[in-house]
């Protein structure tokens, strides 16, 4: 009986997720098609400006290149697209003709996941430790300083942090000579002279190039975790069950981990998974700033060139990531909190 209701709940959730993704895809599809100008015009413009060829010739070239028929009614295109999406076929990119959208995404996504993911995990670990410590040291003089700095970091836009880091490391000459890091190291994903692959040189180079973006993501997120963890731990400290555990004479380690830690981590973990969903789509401006070849930069390029399938594909990936991680957060919350029992009914936010 219990498993049946759980299965029904999961099925309902799954259907809702599918519907959400479908709706987002449809909204994006029409939004993208309604954008002024279209890929062919953009291409023709480009060719005319860059190579100085005539309008007619440029249009001939465009017609030969683009296999997509954009003159068909929009709704016909829409049904065709949705049908293909269900077969996991996202079409070919228009800007790099003949290359499937998924191949480009697969090439770009790891870079974004690498930098944003590591930044998020680092900030989570550091933030939780600092937050928990600060909750215990609320009467010390440095606590307001740390908390204030954390709220400052969490409030200012991440790209401003990136600019500050860039100035700090790459521009200012501290000892009157060279800046701390060569500025070329902060642009792009890896240097031209190294060959991609699993060799030490390449990995070191990638790490060097990723360092500043990762630091940016970490600094922009760490404040949130410090504040959240501090609030959660503080509220746990004042509860009856913690007092009771102390009275019973349990060791402070046991109180810290089993009583305070588990309860304080609950909302923090949920928030972590909610944010995890946004790591795919949240790095547009910073990737542009560091010319980091991730998915955000690809989306900007696709938007400029009106690469319809590419844009749709990237948005689809982003919304799937968000929906999936929200679901994970919900499931995890239930799994971690023994007080909540999954019932089929009454869980839809009623």
């Amino acid at each position: 009986m219990k498993y049946l209701s759980l299965a029904i709940y999961l099925l309902k959730r799954l259907l809702k997720m599918l519907l959400t993704v479908l709706l987002v895809t449809s909204v994006i599809f029409f939004l993208v098609r309604l954008m002024p100008s279209n890929p062919i015009d953009r291409y023709v413009e480009d060719q005319m400006v860059q190579y100085g060829i005539t309008y007619a010739e440029a249009q001939n070239r465009a017609a030969a290149l683009f296999s997509m028929d954009l003159d068909k009614p929009v709704f016909e295109q829409y049904w065709e697209y949705i049908g293909k999406v269900f077969q996991l076929d996202f079409g070919n990119s228009l800007l790099s003709p003949g290359v499937p959208v998924m191949d480009i995404i697969a090439a770009r996504l790891p870079w974004t996941l690498f930098t944003v993911g590591i930044g998020l995990i680092l900030s989570f670990v550091v933030g939780i430790v600092i937050g928990a410590v600060m909750a215990f040291k609320r009467d010390r003089w440095y606590e307001p300083l740390v908390t204030g700095f954390a709220s400052f970091l969490s409030a200012i836009p991440d790209f401003l942090i990136a600019i500050c880091l860039l100035l700090l490391f790459g521009v200012v000459r501290w000892n009157g000579e060279n800046p701390l890091l060569p500025i070329g190291m902060m642009r792009g994903t890896y240097s031209m002279q190294v060959t991609p692959g699993w060799n030490i040189e390449f990995i070191a180079d990638v790490l060097r190039h990723g360092m500043i973006p990762i630091l940016t993501y970490m600094l922009s997120q760490v404040g949130v975790w410090v504040l959240l963890m501090k609030t959660c731990t503080t509220s746990c400290l004042n509860t009856d069950y913690v007092t009771m555990a102390k009275i019973r004479g349990l060791s402070s380690g046991k109180v810290l981990f089993s009583y305070i830690g588990r309860n304080a981590l609950l909302p923090v973990t949920t928030e972590f998974f909610m944010r995890l969903g946004f790591i795919v789509g949240g790095a547009l401006i910073i990737e542009q700033l560091f010319v980091y070849q991730g998915i955000g930069l690809e989306l900007l390029r696709a938007t400029n060139g009106r690469d319809y399938p590419m844009m749709q594909g990237i948005f689809l990936m982003m919304s799937i990531a968000i929906v999936l991680c929200n679901f994970l957060a919900e499931v995890l919350y239930v799994a971690l909190d023994p007080r909540i029992k999954t019932g089929g009914a009454g869980k839809d936010g009623k």
């Binding site: 809702k16 959400t20 993704v21 709706l23 987002v24 909204v27 994006i28 939004l31 993208v32 309604l34 954008m35 002024p36 100008s37 946004f278 795919v280 789509g281 949240g282 547009l284 401006i285 955000g296 989306l299 900007l300 938007t303 844009m311 990237i314 948005f315 982003m318 919304s319 968000i322 929906v323 929200n326 839809d348 936010g349």
Partner: peptide
């Protein structure tokens, strides 16, 4: 209420800055 809540969920699954980038072309 249910409809609005669902729409809000859908709305929140579209990342904001990318959407703005697309919208700003309009």
């Amino acid at each position: 209420d249910g409809l609005l809540l669902f729409l809000a969920d859908v709305w929140l699954s579209i990342p904001r800055i990318p959407l703005l980038v697309v919208l700003s072309a309009f």
